[in-house]
Design a protein around this nucleic acid. Sequence first.
DNA 1: CGGTTTTGACCAGCGC
DNA 2: GCGCTGGTCAAAACCG
Length: 440
Amino acid sequence: MEKKRDNSISSANNHEEEDVKKISKDDEFKSAIAEVNKIKLENARLKLLLQQIEKDYTSLQTRFFNICQPDFKKSSGSPTCTHENIADEEESELVSLRLGRSPSPSEYKKVDKKRSYDKTIEDSPSCNDQSNNGLKLGLDYSTGVCESEFIKPSNDPSPGPTSEVVKTVKKCDDESIKKDDEVSQPNVKRARVSVRTKCDYPTINDGCQWRKYGQKISRGNPCPRSYYRCSVAPLCPVRKQVQRCLEDMSILITTYEGTHNHSLPIEATAMASTTSAAASMLLSGSSTSFQTSKNLPNISKTTPLYLSNSSSNPFPTITLDFTTFPTTSSFTSFNFPSNFQSGLGFLSNSLSFSSTESTTMPILGSGGLNYDSTSTLPYHNNLINIGSSHKQFDTSSNKLKEDSSQQALTETLTKAITSDPSFQSVLAAAISSMVGATKT
DNA sequence: CGGTTTTGACCAGCGC
DNA sequence: GCGCTGGTCAAAACCG
Ligand SMILES: [Zn+2]
């Protein structure tokens, strides 16, 4: 084209100057366009890259939780499980999306769709394991089964009291699996996550359905301890204990144990994922003591530590402490409704871990690693102290308020943990450690 | 009437 | 072996 133009130019002398000008302008334009195209391309490339990274991240997260559950899975099903886990990655995305990260809107949509689908088929928990995968959350690492394991929820490995459960569970169809593992290591018991909250009600509403199956007055505490079992699915092994704190009757200690083997109502995913995450941290072997005071200097490190009397507790236990802040009547100022984002910054700041074995140790300030390998306890009991102004409500306040607030509490827990950079680093560490442990 | 709570009995683990 | 304790079972009571 230029050549042609050149020719014409040479042939027509009088227009020479004009044409030259034109040409240079044309050139400029063209190069500009080329530049734009280039940038566009680059942009697209970066976008792709970003997507890839995001995907990697979620899949990593997913894998982490997948691994957490099968984890110490004994010989029985391992190889298949791993494969399935990986293959299921897409589905499993759900899990990670619910862990406090903010997914892209499109992803969210996908998830929602999927979730509703899950719900519709949720009635028959024993057959829809696949679809359940994404929703399975819990803190049971020893039962360790890949999500597909869920078919045999009854296979609770722990030799102890759980075997009882297994026994009773046999009434249901497939017991073929229930015995699959006599747990090679009796030591491996289930992780427990206990949550301390200020609550005047007999129990916190975590969104799950519970059936009370026992009550005991434990030694040294006049308040009875209540035992609950998840009644969402008949075979669900998840249990929780609820007890009032001896020192402060307004504090409710809820201890969760086990993994849900069914899809959860959306209100329950918060607590489930929270406890799951906490348990994962605990089980990842990181008895780290750290705290995050970076973002918010305001809420400083020296929030009171509540130390559990876990010294007598044979289970690995992690404690999420929600009672740090005095029970001012701050309920109103602390708006609980679902959008917790605003309160989050501050919440995530007082997230702290500590090994409760070192009872009166001022671990908090150190922020360092507090590894108590010399303890007599077989497990480290960790404590997460989440400074929250979670309020005890006026008994007159309506139930709705209570529900939403408690729901919000669980959400807060989840977000506080999962959104915290520290958690993410722990997660990363956990992933690497667990992957390393299971892969070798 | 089905699901949940209550509550005494039962059992396993542990220390002596 | 014995007693204590934590955890669970299961029948009866309760409830919507
Ligand atoms: Zn459940």
